[in-house]
Design a protein around this nucleic acid. Structure first.
Lengths: 160, 160
DNA sequence: AGCTGACGGTCGATCGCATCCACGGAATGT
DNA sequence: ACATTCCGTGGATGCGATCGACCGTCAGCT
């Protein structure tokens, strides 16, 4: 994992559909070399996948909510997580340090659907209580933090 | 936005590097037809981009934290959001209904870095107070909810 | 009804890209 | 010094992206 790998990750996080030829031009290597590097990053689990980012409102998921869950410890936490995974509306799930054990981010079409889901969650085995907050808007999400600052083609030769 | 569009969105959300030829095979159209459909979805803002999903631990971002921010209303909320956008560690930012106005999800390398960032956030104009929770683990994140269930090639003819 | 234009698709051709293979050179261990 | 390994380049080949020409369907108009 050197500077060129980091640059490739940056490029693919910004645009996952770049061709290997284009990536090669950007980092100053040949296409096969880039192909091999990216393959290794995939196999090593550094790159976990490539996903289209779809506007939620466009696909009728205009309501975003955050639900914090207090764990009823008579049920194993892994079983609870597994049960929650069964709800497709739950986009993300974090295991927290603190009073509430889990934070869920979920998206649904309507407030009515949210109500239905929160009630169902509250009845799920292992859930002691829930605390729900509506997200009025998403300012941004999944913003990638750049790993490398300089393009590799320039500045050959170590720091001054 | 018909069933085939939804199917294309599903396919690209699962794997953004599928070729147009492969997409075409999956939905039962020709490659140029798929090319045009995807282009329209991009131009309409339904597809906002394509991003590689990189394992945070692999790029030295092993600490995930959630910070809730109480807004000091003497500063405009938009200015506050803009200031927070300046911190590259903040991956996501939601505007909430409730006591705390903002929820931030951020990733850093170490607890020490987290401390530094939380202190800085607390000093930012418009921040009345912060409440920080560490995420011990991310069970899952950005899981896409499938839009269509059936492959378009099969089951021609309405429901029974 | 018949005409017309917009829309969305197919087909065929061309050019670039992905991918495989053989080869080369630098860094490393013996 | 030599052998080995790693990582790269260059060339060849078949597939995919993409363009242009053409076709069927449908809605609205005369």
């Amino acid at each position: 994992m050197d500077a060129i790998d980091r640059q490739l990750l940056d490029l693919l996080r910004a645009n996952a559909r770049l061709s290997y030829a284009e990536l090669a031009r950007q980092v100053g290597l040949s296409a096969p070399a880039v192909h091999e590097r990216v393959g290794k990053l995939e196999n090593a689990g550094v790159i976990r996948g490539y996903h289209a980012d779809v506007d939620p409102e466009s696909i009728d998921l205009g309501v975003t909510a955050l639900v914090r869950i207090v764990h009823d410890t008579s049920v194993d936490i892994d079983d609870l997580v597994l049960a929650i995974r069964g709800y497709p509306e739950v986009e993300s799930c974090y295991f927290l340090a603190g009073d509430e054990s889990l934070l869920l981010k979920l998206r649904v079409a309507t407030i009515a659907e949210l109500e239905r889901l929160v009630v169902q969650l509250g009845r799920t085995a292992g859930v002691a209580s829930t605390r729900t907050t509506i997200a009025l808007s998403t300012k941004w999400e999944s913003r990638p933090r750049p790993l490398s600052l300089a393009p590799a083609k320039a500045s050959r030769g170590g720091p001054p």
